[in-house]
Computed example of a mutant assay.
Amino acid sequence: MRRSNKDRTDSMRLALMAAARGLFVEKGYADTATPEIASAAGVTRGALYHHFEDKKALFAAVVADEARQVGVEIEAKAAGSSNAREALLDGARGYFDAMAVPGRTRLLLLEGPAILGLHSLQGIDAEHAEGSLKAGLANLFAATGKDPVLLGAFAQLLSAAFDRAALAIEAGGRRDQYEAAIAALVDGISLR
C-alpha cells in the first residue's frame, strides 16, 4: 500500500526532529550543524529546509514536542487524583518523571531559554504544562477560599520552583526531598 504525501511528510518531519533531538542533547545546539542533522535523519539538507526554515525553527519544534510530552505526563498522573492538593502533587510527580527523560532538562530548561528566548519558551509552556498548573491551582484556590487574583503569580512562582527542582535533581539532588518541598509549598498556598 502506498503512503500518502502527508504520511511521507509527517514521517520525514519526525525523522528530522528525532535526529536533531539526539544531536542537540549530545552536542548542544551551538555545536550541531544542519548537515549532521540531515545525515543522521537520512535526508538531504534541502529536505531539512523544506520542513524547517532553519536550525532554530527545528530546535523550536523539538522543544515544543518535549514540552507537549511533559504536559501529557502531568495530565496522566493528575487525572485520578481525589482532590485539588493531590492533583497538584500527582502532577508534580508527573513533571519530575517527565523531566527524568535523558536530555529533556537540557533542552527545556537550559538551552531552550538561551536559544529561543524566555518569551518564546513561555509561549510553548503556555500551550502545554502551564494550563494544567493553573487549572490545578484554580481548583486549590476555590477549595481553600484564596483570592483568584493571585493565581497567575502563584502559577509563575510554582512553575519556577518545579524547574529549579528538576535542575537540582538532574545534578544529583534527592528527588524525594524536592517532592517534599513542593508539597510544603502547595500546603503553604492553601493556608488561609
Rank of each mutant, 00 (worst) to 15 (best):
M1F: 09
R3P: 06
S4Q: 13
D10L: 12
S11M: 13
R13V: 06
L14M: 13
L14V: 08
L14T: 11
M17C: 01
A19L: 00
A20I: 01
R21Q: 13
G22Q: 03
G22K: 05
L23F: 01
L23N: 02
V25G: 09
V25H: 07
V25Q: 11
A30F: 07
D31M: 14
D31Q: 14
T32M: 05
E36Q: 11
E36H: 04
A38E: 08
A38F: 06
S39K: 04
A40R: 04
T44M: 11
Y49C: 05
H51Q: 04
D54H: 10
F59H: 08
A60P: 02
A61L: 07
V62Q: 01
A64V: 09
V70N: 03
G71K: 01
E73S: 07
E73D: 00
K77W: 04
K77I: 06
A78D: 01
A79G: 09
G80H: 12
S81W: 01
S81K: 05
R85L: 05
R85K: 05
E86V: 10
A87M: 05
L89C: 12
L89S: 03
D90E: 14
A92Y: 00
G94P: 07
F96M: 04
D97K: 03
M99N: 06
A100H: 03
P102F: 12
T105V: 14
L107A: 06
E111Y: 08
P113V: 09
P113Y: 08
A114H: 08
I115P: 02
L121W: 01
G123N: 09
I124G: 02
D125W: 02
D125F: 06
H128N: 12
L137G: 02
N139D: 15
A142Q: 15
A143N: 14
A143C: 14
G145C: 15
G145F: 15
P148Y: 14
G152Y: 05
F154I: 15
F154L: 10
A155I: 13
L158T: 02
S159R: 12
A160W: 14
F162R: 04
D163S: 14
R164K: 10
A166C: 11
I169Q: 00
E170Y: 07
A171I: 14
A171E: 14
G172M: 13
G172I: 13
R174I: 07
D176S: 12
Q177A: 00
E179H: 06
A180K: 10
A180L: 12
A180P: 06
V186H: 03
V186M: 03
